[in-house]
Simulated scan of single mutants.
Amino acid sequence: MIDWAAIATVFSVYAVGVVIPGPNFVAVAHKAASTSHREALAMVGGVVVVNLFWASCAILGIGIVFATFPWIALAVKVTGAAYLIWFGGRLLVKAGSAGTAVMQQEKSSCLQSFRAGFATNIANPKSMAFYAAVFASAAPKHVSLPTFIGMIATVAVVASLWYGFVAVVFATPSVAARYRRGKAWIDRICGSVIVALGIRQLVR
C-alpha cells in the first residue's frame, strides 16, 4: 500500500529545498546561457540521476555509513569542495574569452554536459544531508516498495521540472544574447559564487 502522506511530505519539503539556488542552479543556468538547451538538458539529466541516488541512499538508510565512518564523510566533503573550487576557478580564468562555439559533435558535448551535471551534484555531500533530513521526517519506519517508488518518482519529477525550466529559460535567445553581451562579468560572478560555495563547504 502507498503511504500518500509520506509522499506528500517529501514533495512539500523537497520542492522548497530544490528551488533554493546552489551549485546545481548556477551550473545549469550557465551551461544553458553559454551553449545550447540540449547540452543544458543533458546536464540536468546528470543532476537528476544523482538526486535519485542520494534519495535512494537516504530511504535505504545508507546515510548511517557516514555517521559510522566519519572519515568517509570528510573525504567526500574535501573532494567535493575541491571540485567546486576548480570548476568555479576555471570559469574565472576563462571569463571574457571569445563566445562559446557550438561543438561539432553534439553527442559528445551532451555526454560531457551530463558528466558535468553528475560531478557537480555528487561533489556536494550536503545533498546527502538534505535528503537524509527530508526522508527521516517523511519516510515511515518500514517503507513499502510502492511508497519507495512514489518517493523516488516525486524527486525525479520535481528535479526534472525545476532544472529543466531553468535550462529552457536561460537558453532562450534573448537571455542567451544578454549572456553573450555580459559574458565576462557573468562568468566572473558565476565562478565566484561556485568558488565561494566550495570554500564554504570546506570550512564548515
Rank of each mutant, 00 (worst) to 15 (best):
A5S: 09
A8V: 05
T9Q: 11
V10C: 12
S12P: 08
V13Q: 09
Y14H: 13
G17Y: 02
G17C: 08
G17K: 11
P21G: 05
P21H: 07
G22L: 09
P23E: 06
N24P: 11
F25C: 09
F25N: 15
F25G: 05
V26N: 03
V26I: 14
V26K: 04
A27L: 06
A29Y: 03
A29G: 00
S34V: 00
T35Y: 03
H37R: 14
L41M: 14
L41W: 09
L41F: 14
G46Y: 02
G46H: 07
V47E: 06
N51Y: 05
F53L: 15
A55F: 02
S56C: 10
C57A: 12
C57R: 10
L60V: 11
G61A: 08
G61D: 08
I62S: 06
I62F: 15
F69R: 13
F69G: 08
W71R: 10
W71V: 11
I72Y: 13
A73K: 13
A75I: 12
K77R: 13
V78N: 04
T79H: 05
A82E: 01
Y83V: 02
Y83M: 04
V93T: 10
V93E: 09
K94M: 10
K94D: 10
A95I: 03
G96V: 00
G99D: 08
A101Y: 00
A101E: 10
V102K: 13
V102E: 05
M103G: 05
Q104C: 03
S108L: 12
S108V: 14
S108A: 15
Q112N: 11
F114R: 06
A116C: 03
F118C: 07
P125G: 03
P125T: 01
K126Q: 13
M128H: 00
M128W: 00
Y131N: 00
S137H: 13
S137R: 15
A138Y: 01
A138T: 00
A139I: 09
H142V: 14
L145W: 15
P146L: 07
P146I: 03
T147A: 08
F148N: 02
I149L: 14
G150T: 07
M151C: 15
A153N: 04
V155E: 07
A156Q: 06
V157K: 11
V158M: 10
S160A: 13
L161S: 12
W162L: 04
F165W: 14
F165G: 15
A167T: 01
A167D: 03
F170W: 01
P173A: 12
S174T: 12
Y179S: 00
R181E: 10
R181L: 09
G182H: 14
K183F: 01
D187F: 02
R188H: 05
R188G: 10
S192T: 15
V193K: 08
I194W: 06
A196V: 14
L197C: 14
I199C: 15
Q201A: 11
Q201D: 06
L202A: 15
L202W: 06
R204L: 10
R204Q: 12
